[in-house]
Amino acid sequence: MLLYSILFPIISILAILWFFYRYLKQKQSLATVILWTVLWLFVILFSIFPLASERFARLFGITRGLDFIIIVVFLVLFYIIFRLYNRIDILQDEINKIVKEVAINNEITLDDEEDE
């Protein structure tokens, strides 16, 4: 048995447990946990049975199993970047709201200086 076929399933199981732990702590939605669990289960499957990737690859008209895995990894990475970009965008808007509120509620007067 090759090293990756032991290592990847262990990492995957830890990752799944971590996602469930975050779900229990209400830090992750159920949909996200399910999505990531499915993904990690595929990692386990392809680590133990590498030839299984070829069957999936053929479903999508791709000949090599490794190509299929690389394409899937790219898609997942793009999705993560998109989610992060969206999250940062929302955070930027929230920061702007706070910064604006603070400024509007604290008009700078010359009395402020005299008090100092």
Binding site: I95, K100, A103
Partner: peptide
């Protein structure tokens, strides 16, 4: 403002947020 205290109102964003946010602040204030 010391020279024209009644005509000038100052608001200050605690961090740089760009011309759009600064103008929005002015539009709200």
């Amino acid at each position: 403002k010391r020279k024209y205290p009644d005509q000038i109102h100052i608001f200050s964003l605690i961090i740089n947020r760009g011309v759009g946010v600064a103008t929005q602040t002015g539009f709200d204030a």
